[in-house]
Design a binder for these strands. Structure first.
Lengths: 202, 202
DNA sequence: TATTTTGAACTGACTGGTCAGTACAAAAGA
DNA sequence: TCTTTTGTACTGACCAGTCAGTTCAAAATA
């Protein structure tokens, strides 16, 4: 179950990579299992040897991807804390980490956004769990920041967390799709400015 | 061309309404024309009498919906201007208008977000045009605000516009899907606070 | 007024193609 | 030897789009 699973693991990885780009481009239903297999350089039977169904492949892909994202957000927060930075600095580092992630895995992000708010879909419950994990990381830092007096006590933590995540998500996807000539630093600067309230005034 | 087109218009409207919820829930490819027809209380043939194809129905639906959105954003900006309000007040009014829109047409918003960043899809060019219209309204107000000294000259207009739109979009969808007990005023207040930079500090 | 005609709008059974999932024998690792 | 992958062929369900036929309100005619 270990020496042998290395090979399986590699096959699964290839399938994830093939599936994520195809589904991001075309959507889940418009993507065929034959396409995924072909792009992964694998026989169709192998897909079904490794995953119970097309839906299950997709659900595991979601778990896999969001796991990477939360890990990288958490790492950014932790590193800032170790360095003795403020909580607002931690938020800033997380924005950066989020942008990095989206830059590295654009297809995954696309697919996540496209599916997140759908109702009545098979993987809805998976998504709910996975979203909570990701948002929780942001909410925790916000809560700490309020506790330490860095942020106003009047902010609404769940709503502000959602707004911040949305800001990063949409700005990054837009950057990707419509303004790809801008640098990551530009995007980061614009978002950082909003976070610090340096938009209004002079 | 008027008395006769009334009936067609009514049928088309029914088809839009049926299609928008189904596609928001399930996605374009997973939604069948039979389902749309049934939900609209119309025979399948009627769909094809009124629209060239499933894709064309969807594209017209997109144009229809984004038209409503830009109109309401523009109206909010204009009203503020007439009242002699500042540009930042206009932005605030637009946030409100955006939230209202999403509240009224949640399914359309869902569907728009889900499709916007997909590449390689038939309606990509339609979306591009339609997105530009919507974002342009925000960018114009931002530009005016900078010109009148209300906002810092250092802000990056396209990126900030995208971030603001994203903030509203995602916060509203999240509110809808995961925090529906909150009031529209709560959501508006949280976003307004971010816009005015009253997050940090006390 | 009573009748016939017209044509836009609508209907629903049907078709041809597509695709998820299965089967399985043989080959390739490990 | 045991696990994993391959490749090909197959099935049955599902679905976009078609088309011959129906409906009906309003216009034309008598």
């Amino acid at each position: 179950m270990d020496s042998s699973s290395t090979r399986r693991q590699a096959t699964r990885q290839k399938l994830y990579e093939a599936a994520v780009t195809l589904i991001a481009e075309q959507g889940f239903s418009a993507t065929t299992v034959d396409e995924i297999a072909e792009r992964a350089g694998v026989a169709k039977g192998t897909v079904y040897y490794n995953f119970k169904s097309k839906t299950e492949l997709f659900e595991e892909l979601l778990r896999h991807g969001v796991g990477l994202l939360t890990a990288s957000l958490q790492a950014a927060a932790d590193e800032t804390a170790e360095r003795g930075g403020t909580k607002v600095e931690a938020l800033d580092a997380m924005i950066r980490a989020g942008l990095d992630f989206i830059h590295r895995y654009p297809a995954f992000t696309q697919l996540y956004v496209a599916e997140l708010w759908r109702t009545n879909r098979a993987w809805q419950s998976t998504l709910l769990v996975v979203r909570r994990e990701a948002v929780a990381v942001v909410e925790t830092v916000l809560r700490d920041a309020v506790a330490e007096g860095e942020l106003s006590e009047e902010i609404d933590i769940p709503l502000t967390a959602a707004a911040l995540v949305g800001m990063v998500l949409v700005a990054a996807l837009d950057w990707q799709a419509f303004q790809s000539e801008r640098s990551l630093d530009d995007v980061h600067a614009a978002l950082s400015r909003l976070l610090h309230g340096r938009v209004s005034g002079r």
